[in-house]
């Protein structure tokens, strides 16, 4: 009896230890970035788990750089535009794919799935040409265009699975009343699709906010860059002089909105991710 109780206690302790371990593993790098960002540069190289004296110099330094402010602005514009376009094109396409049976439907779905698996590098030179031809090189608009390659397939895919789950009767009633497909989408489905659109929009936003390869390749000057590129290119004279304080401050600034989004919308994100993958 006694050993059994002991084993039970040991099990519980082990379980909670594992949970604590997972928590620390998941959160610590971000926490450590926050700690580092709050240190004056003289303290930077002393390893501490808690900043002994709080100091906001690093934040002042990055926010006084116009190129960083500009990068934040560009990132916001790009991410919101990408979400808007992806949802607009995604909702109409998902109506067609989710509600109408037609020949070629599975081919289109297969094409979409194929595009979502594209390596971005494979289209880099061709896309570079397109962007140059449209005169969008070194312009956030070029990024908005190029990001559709990964946000659109995903958005369509997830919205289609949501669209399919809506009851048939709704649409039949609309058809009986003589509604055109466009009216059916905007008046019947759109109000019901808001949760799904919020989910996919959120995921598209995060994807666009975090994208690096296209942003690095299709922009040239500091004032056209997005945040990830700006952070990657923040550097001092040599590898040993990297300005770690400002880098960590900038990292915290761009990550905090995402962390807040994740904490608020974790249920939505989880359902979106699993709808995109499990049902795929």
């Amino acid at each position: 009896m006694n050993t059994r109780q002991l084993a039970k206690i040991a099990k519980r302790v082990g379980f909670w230890a594992l949970i604590v371990l997972i928590m620390v593993y998941a959160v610590f790098p971000f926490y450590y970035a926050v700690v580092t960002s709050l240190k004056p540069s003289s303290d930077l190289f002393r390893v501490e788990l808690w900043p002994s004296n709080w100091n906001f110099d690093n934040y002042i330094s990055i926010f006084s750089q116009t190129s960083f402010l500009r990068a934040i602005f560009n990132s916001i514009v790009v991410a919101f535009s990408v979400v808007f376009i992806a949802l607009l094109l995604g909702i109409t396409a998902s109506y067609a794919l989710g509600r109408v049976r037609f020949r070629g439907r599975s081919t289109v779905l297969l094409v979409i799935l194929g595009v979502s698996m594209f390596p971005q590098v494979a289209v880099l030179s061709g896309l570079f040409e397109v962007i140059r031809a449209l005169n969008l090189y070194n312009n956030p608009a070029g990024l908005i265009l190029s990001y559709t390659i990964f946000t659109l397939p995903f958005t369509v895919w997830v919205l289609t699975t949501f669209m399919k789950q809506l009851p048939m009767e709704l649409e039949e009633a609309a058809i009986m009343d003589g509604a055109t497909p466009w009216i059916t989408i905007t008046k019947v489905f759109l109000p019901l699709m808001w949760p799904a659109m919020a989910t996919t929009g959120l995921l598209a936003f995060i994807a666009a906010w975090n994208e690096f390869l296209f942003a690095l390749t299709f922009t040239l000057t500091d004032d056209q860059r997005t945040v990830p590129v700006a952070i990657a290119l923040l550097s001092g004279g040599s590898a040993y002089e990297l300005p770690w304080g400002p880098i960590m401050a900038a990292s915290v600034v761009v990550t905090v909105p995402l962390v807040v989004l994740v904490i608020i919308f974790q249920r939505r994100i989880v359902s979106g991710l699993t709808a995109g993958a499990v049902k795929g």
Binding site: M23, A26, F30, V227, L258, L261, V262
Partner: peptide, 12 residues
């Protein structure tokens, strides 16, 4: 908490 690493930009 487990979701946080996923949301952080790869660059960051």
């Amino acid at each position: 908490a487990v979701l946080i690493p996923w949301a952080i930009p790869t660059i960051v």
